[in-house]
């Protein structure tokens, strides 16, 4: 079980919960199951997201392994100038 915190305006799609628990071994599974469990998140996930795993931000890290105690944050997809 990974604990995933979504940003404030997505909480209306997770039944008001800031943090949800998802069974996932890596980021790819996490994003897939998150979308299945909370279909309201689909448009955001489809547009692309970054994830922060224990404080480090990943934009493409689909295969990053997740431990039960890992702190995962969903973030908008990083861009830059």
């Amino acid at each position: 079980m990974a604990k995933v915190t979504v940003w404030g305006s997505l909480r209306s799609q997770t039944g008001g919960q800031a943090t949800v628990e998802i069974e996932a071994r890596n980021v790819m599974e996490l994003l897939a199951r998150l979308g299945e469990s909370y279909p309201g998140l689909q448009p955001t996930l489809k547009r692309g997201v970054s994830v922060s795993i224990d404080g480090l931000i990943y934009r493409e890290g689909w295969l990053q392994p997740l431990q039960p105690e890992t702190e995962v944050y969903l973030l908008p997809r990083m861009t830059g100038g």
């Binding site: 915190t5 940003w7 224990d54 404080g55 480090l56």
Partner: peptide
């Protein structure tokens, strides 16, 4: 006095290294 440092929870969520 108020600066973010290692261990601070950032305003966007994750904790800083």
């Amino acid at each position: 006095k108020n600066a973010a440092r290692e261990g601070t929870r950032s305003s966007y969520g994750p904790v800083y290294g």
